[in-house]
């Protein structure tokens, strides 16, 4: 099961998060959950909407960038957040992602709102294998 930690001393006006996953699937899913947690209290978003998603990118790190950027895009374009995700990532040329998303609309009456994520930055952006699993660092513009 993946873990994430918000970093206090990096980019103080924004949100830096370090993510660890047992494998790539776990890391990408954990990153998505961390992003949802930045924007809302996930417990206040009932899973009423399901979605499938496929992405390709020239490299694994750009796939992570595009994945999180897509979730931010959907938050603005459709007012949807997806705290529940299952992800399958394939490393290659290009790298591929298929995901099943579960979440729902942002409802001002019932959703506990947090910060409006603007974008994924490339500042200190990193995705690297570890002895066991994978680790990423992402700074999200708030």
């Amino acid at each position: 099961m993946g873990r994430h930690e918000f970093l206090e001393s990096v980019a103080v006006a924004d949100c830096a998060v370090e993510i660890e996953g047992d494998d790539l699937d776990d890391l990408f899913a954990t990153a998505a959950r961390a992003l949802a947690e930045v924007m809302v209290d996930p417990a206040t978003v009932p899973a009423t909407v399901e979605r499938s998603l496929e992405l390709t990118a020239p490299s694994l790190d750009l796939l992570l960038y595009d994945w999180l950027s897509e979730l931010i895009y959907v938050k603005d374009s459709e007012q949807l957040v997806f705290p529940g995700v299952e992800v399958h990532v394939t490393d290659g040329s290009p790298s591929r992602l298929t995901a099943r998303l579960a979440g729902g609309p942002i409802d001002r009456a019932t959703t506990a709102l947090r910060a409006d994520a603007k974008a994924v930055t490339f500042h200190q952006f990193a995705l690297e294998p570890r002895e066991r699993g994978w680790r990423a660092r992402v700074v999200i513009d708030i």
Partner: peptide, 29 residues
């Protein structure tokens, strides 16, 4: 979100093309 997306689109694009102009930066951002 309009400006945020334009920033995202072009950051992503410049990340891929700047090396063709011989530009190397100390922070990918």
């Amino acid at each position: 979100g309009f400006g945020h997306q334009i920033g995202t689109d072009y950051l992503r694009r410049f990340d891929q093309i700047m090396h063709g102009y011989g530009i190397v930066v100390r922070d990918r951002e």
